[in-house]
C-alpha cells in the first residue's frame, strides 16, 4: 500500500445532496441529505443493497445527472451549476467512465474505442496514436489493438474500457460494478489494474461494487442504505 496519505486535497465535496425521480405524478426520493468528502488519490468502494441509490449517486458525481438539492464540488467546481452543454464538456475533460457491460462501440476496434475520448481534445493524430498505444500497452492489450469488441473476452473488453477511461487523464474515474460481469480471474486482473492506476498514478477512483474481493482493492468503503450513508470500517485501515 502506498504510505503517505498526508495532506490530501479534497477532490469531491458533497454537501446535503438530495435526488429523487418523478414517476407519473409521484415523487420517488432516492438520495437524502448525502454529505461526503473524497480526497484526491482515494479509491472508494461504494456499497449497498440493490436499489439503495449507488448508481444514482455515482451518476451525480460524474455529471450525468443533476441533483435536486445540495452542493457537489469536483476539484473545486460546483458542477450542479453547469448547463447540459457545459456538463458534456466538463465530463469529457474530467471524468473517466467504466461500466459493468464495458459499453464499447461494437463497430470500432480496440484502438478506435480508446481513441474516442481524445477526439474531443485538440490533440494531433500522432499524439493520439502515441497515447492510445501507451494506454493499451498499460492494460496489456498492445497486441489486440485491431480487434473488435466481439473478438475480445469480457475481461479484455473491460481492459479496453479502462484504457478508454484513463486516456484523457481525467480528474476522477467512476466505475459502476466494473467486475459485475466477469469471472474471478478476469475480475482480479481488472481490480489489479485499477489499483495500479490508483497507487502509481494517483488517480481518484469511485467504484460501485457488490464484490467483496473488489472491496479489498479499495482504500475506503462507503455504505449506502436506502439513500443514506452509513458508517462502515475501511478494509485497509
Amino acid at each position: 500500500m502506498s504510505a503517505a496519505p498526508a495532506p490530501a486535497r479534497p477532490i469531491v465535496e458533497i454537501t446535503r445532496l438530495a435526488k429523487g425521480y418523478r414517476r407519473g405524478d409521484q415523487d420517488v426520493p432516492v438520495l437524502f441529505d448525502i454529505s461526503l468528502v473524497i480526497p484526491e488519490g482515494d479509491f472508494i468502494a461504494l456499497m449497498g443493497p440493490s436499489g439503495s441509490g449507488k448508481s444514482t449517486l455515482l451518476n451525480l458525481i460524474a455529471g450525468i445527472d443533476k441533483p435536486d438539492a445540495g452542493e457537489l464540488l469536483v476539484d473545486g467546481e460546483d458542477i450542479t451549476q453547469l448547463s447540459e452543454a457545459q456538463l458534456a464538456d466538463w465530463r469529457a475533460a474530467h471524468v473517466g467512465f467504466i461500466f459493468q457491460f464495458y459499453n464499447l462501440m461494437p463497430v470500432l476496434d480496440a484502438f478506435e474505442n480508446v481513441e474516442l475520448p481524445l477526439l474531443l481534445t485538440s490533440l494531433s493524430r500522432r499524439e493520439r496514436r502515441e497515447r492510445v498505444e501507451t494506454a493499451l500497452s498499460l492494460v496489456g492489450l498492445a497486441d489486440r489493438m485491431e480487434h473488435y469488441p466481439n473478438e475480445l473476452s469480457g475481461g479484455q473488453q473491460q481492459r479496453v474500457a479502462i484504457a478508454r477511461a484513463f486516456i484523457s487523464d481525467p480528474t476522477i474515474i467512476v466505475a459502476d460494478e466494473p467486475t459485475g460481469d466477469l469471472d474471478r480471474k478476469s475480475a482480479g486482473e481488472i481490480l489489479g489494474l485499477l489499483r495500479r492506476f490508483n497507487e502509481e498514478m494517483g488517480k481518484t477512483i469511485i467504484m460501485v461494487t457488490h464484490d467483496w474481493h473488489a472491496v479489498e482493492s479499495a482504500r475506503h468503503v462507503v455504505h449506502l442504505e436506502k439513500g443514506e450513508l452509513v458508517d462502515a470500517p475501511a478494509p485497509h485501515a
Binding site: 466538463w90 469529457a92 471524468v95 459499453n103 475520448p117
Partner: peptide, 14 residues
C-alpha cells in the same frame, strides 16, 4: 441506447 448513452457520458454532445 447504451451506445448513445456511452457517447453522451464520454462528453459527446446531444
Amino acid at each position: 441506447l447504451a451506445e448513445y448513452a456511452t457517447l453522451k457520458a464520454l462528453g459527446f454532445g446531444p
